[in-house]
Amino acid sequence: MGSFIVKNVFIIGSKGIPANYGGFETFVDNLVTRRINKNIKYHIACMTFDKEVKHYDYNGANCQEISIPNIGGAKAILYDLKSLKWALKTIKKNKLSNGIIYILACRVGPFLHQYITRFHRYGFKVWVNPDGHEWKRAKWSKPVRKYWKFSERLMVKNADFLICDSKTIEKYIAKEYRKYKPETTFIAYGADITASGLLKNDDKVRNWYENFNITLDEYFLIVGRFVPENNFETMIREFMSSNVRNDLVIVTNIEKNKFYEELRQKTRFDTDPRIKFVGTVYDQQLLKFIREHALAYIHGHSVGGTNPSLLEALASTKINLLYNIGFNREVAQNSSFYWDKAKGSLSKTITRTTSLAKNDKKRYDQLSENQVMKYYSWEKIVGDYEMIITGENI
């Protein structure tokens, strides 16, 4: 029998697995738990603020906690650097070769070159997932945004290979950094297309809907981080200017959020009883049920690649109203309605949704579900990754 060479893949930049929340964490969890090719060995860096670190096995993956101080925004950079050191140490100690260092997001550009030469010495390639346009996010100050852009440029320049989870991002990388001739490919983010499995009369379902006085199948839904680039101001203003009787249910974390207070003063959304901020929902099955029983989902994300909450909505929610931008159109195509920031654009779309015929609702529901099943199922995404990890074409 021929012997197989194990491909060692170190994943740097996710907070760790098992995943509780977050796109990269869910991605890594699925990559590990749905692994089919037994000749791939994953090594996962996991973030902790504890001094005592744990080393454990999770579905065959070698997981190592990396301890860092909780020092605000810079902690992510420190975490990535410490994770790279751990990967290098593990490779040396176990005499590993023929592998990949896969870095999620572009945080450590200024430091990458010195690591790449060392990893190359051991036969390891360095791959990067550039994520979305982090340097566009309004939460960062100008100097921080400048750093993100600078870091992105150096990551693209020095990486051996880039995997973009959006064709729009792949096009941007090819155009913006063409002088570096970056080698790229596109592999999307995935979605879970199974139903929630919960029933209307389940206690946790009944309690949640009664608690917020929400009527099943009659509400508009928004799920996402409460940040300016997700177009909350436009979505709330437009909903308020519509005369629909339905509620707007917003699943987001608004604790200690300055933007929430600014928006409340600007729009006076607190005077409109239809607008209901319900906090976060960490129970994934309940969240899926809430998506399934919305009349429509409104998606305002304007920064980033293939957005996880958009995929979940396409898989679960009957009608989807999406901000008209390349990322969102690429994912949903003709399965959704689109709106822009022009006054009346979204409010008209909201009103139109309430008068859709039953057959039209059914058709859009089917179109969006098919879109996810065809292009974004986790089975497909994991299969694409395994082919590229084990392939000799890189």
Rank of each mutant, 00 (worst) to 15 (best):
D384T: 03
M47Q: 12
V331L: 00
V223R: 01
F150V: 05
K348F: 04
F161M: 11
K125F: 13
H120T: 11
G326R: 08
P273F: 06
F212L: 01
I254P: 04
G300H: 08
E218H: 14
Y282D: 12
S241A: 11
F289E: 12
N230G: 01
P182R: 10
F119C: 05
Q265C: 03
H120Q: 11
F337K: 06
K149L: 04
I173H: 06
S14C: 13
A76S: 15
N334E: 14
C46H: 02
Y323S: 00
N231T: 09
A61F: 03
Q366F: 12
K54L: 12
K179Q: 06
K142N: 14
Q114V: 14
F24T: 01
D272W: 04
D160L: 07
I254L: 00
Y323P: 03
A19R: 09
D160P: 05
K92Y: 12
R268D: 00
S196F: 01
G109P: 06
A138R: 14
F10H: 05
K167S: 07
E392K: 10
S345I: 08
I298F: 02
G326V: 00
N8A: 05
K41G: 10
C63K: 03
K171V: 08
D272Q: 13
K380E: 06
G123L: 00
I350A: 04
L96Q: 09
A159F: 00
